[in-house]
Write a protein that binds this DNA or RNA. Structure first.
Lengths: 200, 200
DNA sequence: CTTACAATGTAAGTGACGCCAACATAAGGG
DNA sequence: CCCTTATGTTGGCGTCACTTACATTGTAAG
């Protein structure tokens, strides 16, 4: 039964999924600060105590959304694969995809990177695609290979993650450096990658 | 009159400063999520309505702490100056100072980079020392000079900021890449700076 | 000095919040 | 069919941010 639709029976039928779906849109509207479990229950058409049958508390629900966010981020990074391009280009596309994901899901992105125990399990999954491509870029000569790929990937991740969080928090406003997402990523990664970008 | 000390007179005398001081320690204990204006008022020994004589709402108080945080971050970056070292080394020390600031003031750091209108004025102040040193590093040949210093500084900032936020959120846990703050910054900036670090 | 006023405190209350305990209803297996 | 378990509801607790009306004090003009 879809979110927000009145039900006739006492039991909802698929409340857990309805809560997760409703939480995503409520988060998009109100942000992670303004998110309210009571309002979510109200929208789904259920009492304010019902969600506690499916999630131990508010943080457990948000944590589940974060876990799903890691999977979504991973597939977003994986989907940057294209036939016959260089690893360096793939890294650029991953960076852009990362910023896009953050811009499209700002609240979930924020929750993903607050410290909540348990995320150490699922976060490496989103990190792995980058490590793989960095290894390829090292073989291809686009990145120094005297450093383990994990360390290089961590640096690239930090750079892209920093761009994403600063952009979300309007960190670049007021510096006189207005740029598009693509330029932001390009200018940053050009300093890290050894070869200049093919298109410029 | 210091925080938490009982007063005899009806008026506090310096409530505004006492609130800001108490807020810093309360934030350190509870984090920005668990921070409560009521508890702050209780600790300072004043009614829960009193803070509203000095701050329009909770966010205004936190915003003021964020503004002070920008000034503190700026001085932390400025204090990395040493006689007779290279600009590249100065950049490394700035990076370490940035991570230290974040680790020492995690809640304030988090508040600083959430989007709150007004911070566009004071944030460039903390950004400026880095821009200056990047310009020197370009003249010194440690960074490419065919790109404006602001753009290079933005990339370095993003990298260091990413390291800081990921470290705060335990982002590197579970990756099998445990490192000290100094190593984290060194390994990242070595990829950005052209010359290898003198010590290694 | 007094008296008016502005600044700064309190008390009490509002609606929303997260969460809990006790109870009601339904679903499903023996 | 009945009994257990899962999954809802009602009502309530304590806390929160914030407001309104009132109390107290510092200050400065008459």
């Amino acid at each position: 039964m879809p979110t927000g639709v009145k039900r006739s029976s006492y039991h909802h039928g698929s409340l857990r999924e309805a809560l997760l779906d409703g939480a995503r849109t409520l988060l998009a509207e109100r942000g992670s600060q303004g998110f309210s479990l009571n309002e979510l229950a109200r929208r789904v058409g259920v009492s304010s105590a019902a969600p506690y049958r499916h999630f131990v508390d508010r943080d457990a629900l948000l944590g589940e959304l974060a876990d799903q966010g890691y999977l979504g981020l991973r597939t977003a990074l994986e989907e940057t694969e294209r036939p016959s391009t260089t690893p360096a280009d793939r890294i650029r596309r991953m960076g852009v995809a990362y910023l896009r994901f953050a811009a499209d899901n700002p609240a979930v992105f924020g929750i993903m990177f607050q410290h909540r125990p348990g995320h150490e399990k699922v976060r490496p999954l989103a990190f792995q695609p980058l490590v793989d491509v960095v290894g390829q870029a090292q073989e291809h000569g686009d990145l120094p290979d005297h450093v383990p790929p994990g360390v290089v990937a961590r640096t690239i991740w930090a750079t892209v993650h920093g761009l994403a969080t600063l952009q979300l928090g309007q960190g670049f406003v007021g510096l006189g450096l207005e740029d598009s997402t693509e330029n932001l990523v390009d200018q940053a990664l050009t300093l890290l990658l050894r070869r200049p970008r093919p298109g410029g």
